[in-house]
Design a protein around this nucleic acid. Structure first.
Length: 419
RNA sequence: CGGGGUGUAGCGCAGCUUGGUAGCGCGGCUGGUUUGGGACCAGUAGGUCGUAGGUUCGAAUCCUAUCACCCCGACCA
């Protein structure tokens, strides 16, 4: 990839309407632009980060044999009436009529649609378990969207659903997802915790939340020294206490702020029963299907990762979700074709090595280019100008190091440049 | 929905109190000099001052309405 055909839209000044650091940095680095409140366009740079996260999520879900599907964004109200949520779900559910006066809603979550899907094709216990997921844009008409993509109305979510012949099978699957989620957030290199949670609007018997720990988080968590614990609603119930300070005293644990990036639920038969999703078991008996559902806020993960990894220069990406592994800066190439040739060779060699590299061939000064790539947060910056071309070496500036250093051109084979 | 705030050039802002026909920084474009941490000089383009109405000889400025956006709260994955 070269900057000549990969638009870089960095800006110098802080956007006037951004409050939290992730929102500011996502705008400044040119990852997103606002369309209207709670709705953002993902630019090429931002979308690369989304893609990196999705790759990791897909990989882990494939490992537990969860298969990908894609469901429509707009859903007919009949299904929601069947489940009872047409009346239960608040104004967050954006409803509208089509030209035939049929009522629809924008999908905030997909239990109804997938339950309907499965009841058409599921009949026997021999087909179970079934695990499906999708990654798609969801819409929730938030009371107050805020903090950029942290709490937006349109957002990208991975939602998975599992279907089982019994509660014990659901339990087994639930722990598989729990493990997969831990793998996902470990792969994303985030400081996170899993806590006992309230199942809220989605419903069901048991649920756990995954939080990225960050001071700017909107959720209160009660955690012990190893960051195990529960969300604050559960804590209030458990300790029969509303006052947060008293809860801390009673529990001996600490209050921390978290950004909820994942939530897993044991739904049981909450949807299968009212919507008649049933199967015939080995004794020819008809039973309700046991279900689980498992969400990850992909777009929110991006913001959460930044809240946890930045400095005064900009973002510091965990390498697994960085839009690029290497920014290759070419200097002064106008006056000396040897520089261009040497840089081009390094670029090609990096690509041949499978390094995810962006070649900055813009006609800008070193300071401008460094500032851009440090703002964007690329882990490795390689600089090539007159000096390096003559010495046949490269200057390396790591995002997490203060000083630049000269390395031999063979450095392009270094394993630290790949994920 | 309640409270607070902001809308002026692509971005960030000043001007508004005290009405006289719009300015600064950054960015853009052209030319030149530069070039290893956000260069300099010269020139140039770009704005129905959120929108609508009103007051006035005259409105970015005063009045009314309205819309959008941000913050706090209630709510929520």
């Amino acid at each position: 990839m070269k900057t000549s055909n990969f638009p870089i839209f960095t800006v110098k000044s802080d956007p006037s309407d951004a409050e939290v650091v992730s929102h500011k940095l996502m705008i400044k680095s040119g990852m997103i632009r606002k369309l209207s409140s709670g709705q953002y366009t993902w630019l090429p740079l931002g979308l690369r980060v989304i893609d990196k996260i999705q790759d990791i999520v897909r990989n882990e879900l494939n490992r537990i044999d969860c298969r990908e599907i894609l469901m429509p964004l707009i859903q007919p109200n009949e299904l929601w009436k069947e489940s009872g949520r047409w009346s239960e779900y608040g104004p967050e559910l954006l409803r509208f009529k089509d030209r035939h006066e049929r009522e629809f809603c924008f999908g905030p979550t997909f239990e109804e649609v997938i339950t309907d899907l499965l009841r058409q094709d599921l009949s026997s216990y021999k087909q179970l378990p079934i695990n499906l997921f999708q990654i798609s844009t969801k819409f929730r008409d938030e009371i107050r969207p805020r903090f950029g993509v942290m709490r937006s109305r349109e957002f990208i979510m991975k939602d998975a659903y599992s279907f089982h012949a019994s509660a014990s099978c659901l339990d087994i699957s639930y722990s598989k997802y729990m493990k997969a989620y831990k793998n996902i957030f470990n792969s994303l290199m985030l400081d996170f915790t899993m806590v006992d949670a309230d199942s809220g609007n989605i419903g069901g018997s048991e649920s756990h939340e995954f939080h990225v720990i960050a001071n700017t988080g909107e959720d209160d968590l009660l955690l012990d020294d190893s960051n195990n614990g529960m969300n604050i609603e559960i804590a209030k119930e458990k300790y029969q206490e509303e006052n947060l300070e008293k809860i801390v005293g009673k529990s001996g644990m600490t209050l921390k702020k978290g950004i909820e990036v994942g939530h897993i639920f044991k739904l049981g038969t909450k949807y299968s029963k009212p919507m008649n999703l049933r199967f015939t078991d080995e004794n020819s008996k008809i039973n309700d299907v046991f279900m689980g559902c498992y969400g990850i806020g992909i777009s929110r993960v991006v913001a959460a990762a930044i809240e946890q990894n930045y400095d005064d220069k900009g973002i510091i990406w965990p390498k697994t979700m960085s839009p690029f592994q290497v920014a290759l800066i070419e200097l002064d190439s106008k006056k000396n074709t040897g520089i261009r040739e040497y840089t081009e060779n390094i670029y090609k060699a990096l690509k041949n090595n499978g390094v995810d590299v962006i070649h900055d061939n813009r006609d800008l000064k070193l300071g401008n280019k460094l500032a851009d790539w440090e703002l964007i947060g690329i882990p490795n910056i390689l600089i090539i100008g007159q000096k390096e071309t003559e010495n046949k070496n490269i200057t390396l500036k790591r995002r997490d190091e203060e000083e630049k250093r000269e390395v031999a051109s063979e450095f392009i084979n270094d394993s630290s440049l790949t994920v």
